[in-house]
Design a protein around this nucleic acid. Structure first.
Lengths: 74, 74
DNA sequence: GGTTTAACGAAGCTAAACTTCGGGTTGTAA
DNA sequence: TTACAACCCGAAGTTTAGCTTCGTTAAACC
């Protein structure tokens, strides 16, 4: 089981949490900006599920980052 | 209406079509690799809708590119 | 002409995104 | 030691948007 085999959802969630924190936002604040519940943001950050494409776009505008940057993993 | 205001779906679809073509794949071939119908691939490339996160991951593996590269627009 | 590739609509289906409930954990500050 | 903030976590229900299945049209190439 290589570490690279982590699902895209998990990697995205981890990256989202990084960017959100770096912006000094709580899950609740991001949720309100995007128009989702805090639970849904939590689920996305934990990799339970990814956002829909429309919500992905809203997240990028809420965080003021290009979509690309949310897919930059290490 | 600035050109930049094009929806993420549209931008992603356009980029997907670029990458797929550059790989010398038809919509049908990509559809088979990903496990979707050709109509669905067509809809995604035309920006009718985006892929689910699971299918986004399958697309990246089918094209052998990082997810990030499908969000690199100009 | 015949074949391939892909655009395009409409209408239905279903999986996955999303919500709503409840409870648990950690940190910290009063 | 309590109170609050922020977040994790599971289960069960709802909704929506991703996906399919029909069918038509058209350009490109042989």
């Amino acid at each position: 089981m290589t570490p690279e085999s982590t699902s895209l959802k998990k990697q995205f969630g981890k990256r989202l949490q990084q960017v959100r924190s770096s912006r000094g936002l709580t899950q609740e604040e991001l949720a309100e900006k995007v128009g989702l519940t805090i639970e849904s943001i939590s689920n996305i950050e934990r990799g339970i599920h990814g956002p829909s494409f429309d919500n992905l776009e809203k997240i990028t505008t809420a965080l003021n980052v290009p979509a690309k940057s949310l897919f930059e993993f290490e």
